[in-house]
Design a protein around this nucleic acid. Structure first.
Lengths: 110, 110
DNA sequence: TTAATATATTAGAATATTAGAATATATTTG
DNA sequence: CAAATATATTCTAATATTCTAATATATTAA
């Protein structure tokens, strides 16, 4: 298969991970370093099974890595470069929000 | 609603656009500048209706912009910053491929 | 106005994703 | 070994996404 197509598919596949706001929240919490499932449960308020599902998915896709310490399992980012990509998207979103706000204001002025 | 949650949701929503390899291919073609639907049809080999659907979606989400010239409609990127994010993801993917290849080679050596 | 070209929309079947409930597994402590 | 704690897995109903084919709309040229 065409190598370019393959990369597009891998890219699309990776982005599927980022289509869930809870997963993005989890990843953003991991920005500061590894966290256990329980810590993530407290930080997000999600059900344990649900967090575990999200983490399992992200581990399969090699977005996060794990380290066991006793009964705890600590999750961390496998490649911190993803944070840079997230930051760019966030910049774009803020710009979009700002643009929309300006547009709304112009409508009000009429 | 919590502003952070809102941003995570917008981010997730935007990433939905990138979960389709055809859309990523289209966006990458637009890297070089605006293209008409027909040009994109030729470049990708996709059905016209399908391209139109993808473009319509990306236009709704303000990822691409349009300009009409006669019967042609030219599509372009609304915010070129997205390309930088794509490049980071691609770097990560290449690193992952490389890592996997090394691992496979170690297995062979045994 | 009619034909030709470019683009958009709709409908529908196949497939994928989600959260939560229930259950299972693994580790430590007593 | 039994109990307690932490984490993982499985199942299911609801919802969302995909592509193709068919049809519709818009613009230009004759």
């Amino acid at each position: 298969m065409d190598i370019d197509k393959k990369i597009y598919e891998m890219h699309a596949e990776m982005c599927k991970i980022f289509t869930n706001s809870k997963r993005l929240e989890i990843l953003n919490i991991l920005r500061d370093g590894e966290k256990s499932v329980t810590e993530l449960e407290k930080a997000t308020g999600l059900h344990q099974s649900n967090i575990s599902q999200h983490l399992s998915l992200m581990r399969d896709k090699m977005i996060v890595e794990t380290r066991r310490d006793g009964t705890n399992i600590y999750y961390s980012l496998a490649d911190k470069r993803i944070l840079k990509a997230f930051d760019i998207v966030r910049e774009m979103l803020y710009a979009k929000i700002h643009k929309n706000a300006e547009f709304a204001q112009k409508l009000d002025e009429k």
